[in-house]
Design a protein around this nucleic acid. Structure first.
Length: 524
RNA sequence: GGCCCCUUCGUCUAGCGGUCUAGGACUCCGGCCUUUCACGCCGGCAACACGGGUUCGAGUCCCGUAGGGGUCACCA
């Protein structure tokens, strides 16, 4: 470990959405920086962006904000190392290329891409590993002139060592050895002067004074060339930590946003997705599989997950403290995080486990906050006014109290839409109505009898109603099951939900009677 | 295919030579609770990839095999 101030970074591409695997990587960077009192920096990889960057970046920044992963430097907040957008840093890259050229660590190459491709194929055919012949390498101004006279244009390649080895010291994996002869003369600058990723990354890391490069393991094999670039530029090397990637559910393959169709065949993934779709359709959210699915973090926000639950789940994907602790507050996470305890093997994304964290966090959430989380969903569904009137909070509190653990994500409040609809609007679930009201012989009669009893009730709280019904059931000589299901369907429209007496009390006498009358009328 | 990485219950993991008849969590399966649903509670199934070493002793160290994965761009 160096004694440099700790500075970590995450470099999202402005693609319009935040990938869950990327978030896990960002989280580890953030945690490490916070733990060591350092800075967490966001750099934007927008070099090959055709689209509107600001627009495509917004969901990503929103995602980070929602998760509570604050960045010390980067877009919107600025910082001493501006600019943080790669597209604005081309001069820095170009000057680094110039230095490399002057050092002899890079050269102008006049080969046409077909020519290099041909060499590559020939090598493949002979089953030897490909090494560029450097046939069109310009070593002097004369060479350049000669090649240019042939109508060729130059790109810049790294002049990589062709013997010896490099040991990459990795904080997660230990020492990893690479042979230089396997490395290629990678292109670092195109004919049009634009620079490539590896060069840009190394320059940025130096300019931003990044002390620890914590990234997914797919970058491990890129590390030698980056180290070479840094060394040739005279940069102090950062520490490297290659963390395992997040894998597909039930597989070790890297989780990707492109393989949704495959994931949908996974029962658990599909269930999570369906949950999201249900909420989305109830709030009239237009969704496309591209931008709204469980691989994308914004999905969780839209559906009403708690950021703390998502983060807690994610931190345990590839990291653990001990053999039993699973729940961590943000402070505890920061306090306990260490790269030494990061695993080496890929961890697959497991929707049920995420859901269980969400359940637990929701159960712990204080009522006031729960109410606040649910309000926007009711508004978007058009069930309450925006801004809410003064009845909303108390009523919602009553409902949430009665609903208890049944609200797993904030969007689940829409399961109880019946309490916000007018008596006339209430939709009866056809199947439930058939099974509980129309089909049982006595149901309608009993419902009518109880309705009249209810009409005379003086107390309309849950406890009184329960006593009322139970006494009546006893005196009438029937079982509670013969009336209670019909009662639920008649008043809430559905066969499932929280306690019937709570339901009646929340609805109030007037609504109960109106709804029961409607139901009875439907039986005919 | 070359190079590199990885390998404990279905999944996330604990385990850093004896405390492992391998622990926890999620899932799953029973049961209890119960007016439905959910929660909760109790119980259960389930793993050291394989083969060699080293050692008095190996899930833990070494080597090999197999399997999985990553990477081999004028993408990032």
């Amino acid at each position: 470990m160096t004694d440099r101030p700790v500075r970590t970074r995450f470099a999202p591409s402005p693609t319009g959405y935040l990938h869950i695997g990327g978030v896990r990587t960002a989280l580890f960077n953030w945690l490490f920086a916070r733990k060591h009192g350092g800075q967490f920096i966001l750099r934007i990889d927008d070099t090959d962006q055709q689209r509107n960057v600001a627009e495509a970046l917004q969901p990503i920044l929103d995602g980070f904000r929602w998760l509570g992963l604050d960045w010390d430097e980067g877009p919107e907040v600025g910082g001493p190392c501006e600019p943080y957008y790669q597209s604005q840093r081309s001069e820095r890259y170009a000057s680094a290329v110039q230095t490399l050229l002057e050092n002899g660590a890079a050269y102008r190459d006049y080969a046409k891409s077909e020519e290099v491709q041909a060499e590559r194929e020939a090598a493949e055919k002979e089953k030897r590993s490909f090494v560029y012949s450097r046939k069109w390498m310009a070593e002097s101004a004369e060479d350049c002139a000669r090649f240019e006279a042939e109508g060729r244009t130059a790109i810049v390649r790294l002049k990589m060592p062709r013997e010896g080895k490099l040991i990459v010291k990795d904080l997660v994996r230990g020492d990893v050895e690479f042979a230089w002869e396997r490395e290629q003369d990678h292109v670092i600058q195109r004919a049009d002067g634009s620079c490539l990723y590896h060069l840009a990354t190394v320059v940025d890391e130096h300019d931003f004074k990044i002390s620890h490069v914590i990234r997914a393991e797919e970058h491990l094999s890129n590390t030698p060339r980056q180290i070479y670039i840094a060394q040739q530029l005279g940069y102090e090397l950062p520490e490297f930590a290659h963390i395992p990637f997040v894998a597909e559910p039930g597989s070790k393959t890297k989780l990707s946003k492109r393989k949704l169709e495959k994931y949908m065949k996974n029962r658990d993934f599909k269930a999570l997705n369906d949950l999201g779709q249900t909420v989305a359709s109830r709030i009239g959210l237009e969704t496309s599989a591209e931008t709204f699915n469980p691989v994308i973090v914004n999905f969780y926000e839209e559906v009403g997950f708690l950021a703390d639950a998502v983060v807690n789940y994610l931190v345990l994907l590839g990291w653990s403290l001990d053999d039993k602790t699973e729940d961590f507050s943000r402070e505890e996470m920061i306090e306990n995080f260490s790269l030494e305890r990061v695993n080496k093997a890929a961890a697959s994304f497991d929707p049920p486990k995420l859901l269980s964290f969400q359940d637990r966090y929701m159960q712990k959430l204080e009522m006031k906050k729960k109410v606040a989380k649910c309000v926007p969903f009711l508004q978007k569904a058009g069930l309450i006014a925006d801004p809410p009137d003064c009845n909303t909070a108390p009523r919602l509190t009553e409902i949430l109290t009665a609903a208890d653990d049944r609200i797993k994500v904030a969007g689940d409040i829409l399961d109880f839409g019946a309490f916000f609809q007018s008596d006339e609007e209430l939709q009866f679930d056809e199947k439930a109505f058939e099974k509980r009201i129309r089909k049982p012989e006595e149901a309608a009669t009993l419902l009518k009898e109880f309705r009249d009893l209810l009409a005379d009730a003086s107390e309309f709280d849950a406890a009184s109603l329960e006593k009322l019904l139970k006494d009546w059931v006893t005196s009438r000589g029937i079982k509670i099951g013969q009336i209670i299901h019909a009662l639920r369907v008649a008043t809430t429209g559905t066969a499932v939900g929280f306690g019937v007496f709570d339901s009646l009390a929340i609805l109030g006498k007037e609504s109960c009677l109106a709804r029961m009358d409607r139901a009875l009328a439907m039986v005919g």
